[in-house]
């Protein structure tokens, strides 16, 4: 099967769809405005203007939220940032696009070199400073999310509105996770261990802190063709969190082998994927599910087929 050929096709298809296309057009516009208007000050850092691609200078400003930045760019900011950079005839949307472009540059450092170099003659700009971060094209990890972006506090997570006072009252995940056993994916917390070791005490009943689940210790082994180890489905860890009715009969008929399960279904959010890859540990952790070695004596507490 041409498995390897499908993946690039998929990636291309995703790239081609509207939201991404729009984002690109938006950024091109932003760059054009930047190169025409903003570059005069923001390239060399005239009068203390934060330089393009200078993550340090932009970080505290970005924290104030994109809307605050739009506001400054449109209305100006004392002492030296003029409204719309002085180009009052440029439409608001284009100024915002320029801000987006500058914010994106600060976040990934990429366009810093690219933008300052060709703009050379138009601006009294100095070339990229030695402190400028390396272009993203040369970064070590291109796709892997850096550790610094994991478990962000709500105001920085991209979905909470930093302009909302309530957002700043919410608890940052890391404040709690630091005291819990870590894992490699998802919340990066090993929730099974956290519960087993009594580090957390989630209630089984809304009001009664003493109510406890009836944990059922029954493993179901699902044989897997090919090289992947067989899957051991443990009722124990599930019934510690869930009710039988959460799975039976809606997701799984309670009868060994009666359910057709495949990785494709799981990736699409069905079967085990109803929870794994959404709330419980994600699909990337193959060996937590595919845990039974083949061609060896059956695991002691696993039920053989």
């Amino acid at each position: 099967m041409n498995r390897t050929l499908r993946i690039p096709a998929l990636a291309l298809a995703i790239l081609g769809c509207a939201p991404f296309g729009a984002a690109h057009a938006q950024n091109d516009k932003g760059k054009a405005i930047y190169d025409k208007v903003c570059v005069a000050c923001h390239s060399a850092g005239i009068a203390g203007a934060p330089k393009l691609g200078d993550a340090k200078a932009w970080e505290p400003r970005i924290k104030a939220g994109i809307d605050a930045l739009y506001e400054s760019a449109l209305k100006g900011k004392a002492p030296a940032m003029p409204a719309k950079g002085g180009a009052t005839d440029v439409p608001d949307a284009d100024i915002k696009a320029a801000v987006d472009y500058m914010v994106a540059a600060a976040k990934d450092g990429a366009p810093a070199a690219a933008a300052t170099a060709p703009a050379g003659p138009a601006a009294q700009a100095a070339p990229a400073t030695p402190t400028a971060p390396r272009p993203a094209a040369l970064s070590f990890n291109r796709l892997l999310k850096p550790a610094s972006k994991r478990n962000p506090p709500p105001p920085e997570d991209g979905i909470h509105d930093p302009d909302n006072d309530g957002t700043h009252a919410l608890q940052p995940p890391l404040q709690v996770f630091e005291s819990l056993p870590r894992s490699n994916a998802g919340n990066r917390v090993d929730w099974v261990k956290a519960l087993d070791n009594n580090l957390i005490g989630p209630r089984w009943d809304r009001t009664d802190p003493a109510a406890a689940p009836v944990v059922m210790d029954l493993n179901i082994v699902r044989e897997v063709k090919g090289s992947m180890p067989d899957v051991v489905y443990p009722h124990k860890q599930h019934t510690a969190w869930l009710d039988c009715s959460n799975c039976h009969p809606q997701i799984f008929i309670p009868q060994k082998g009666a359910n057709q399960i495949s990785m494709a279904a799981i990736l699409l959010g069905q079967k085990c994927g109803v929870c794994h890859g959404k709330v419980a540990f994600p699909v990337s952790e193959c060996r937590i599910c595919h845990s039974k070695k083949k061609n060896v004596m059956p695991v002691k507490n696993a039920q053989a087929n």
Binding site: P202, R203, P213, A240, W241, L242
Partner: peptide, 21 residues
């Protein structure tokens, strides 16, 4: 509205919300 699972699962098992409620 943003509902944080991590915060709530420290305090309640899934069963409370997804079965009882």
């Amino acid at each position: 509205v943003i509902f944080p699972h991590w915060f709530h699962r420290i305090r309640f098992r899934c069963k409370v919300c997804h079965a009882d409620l």
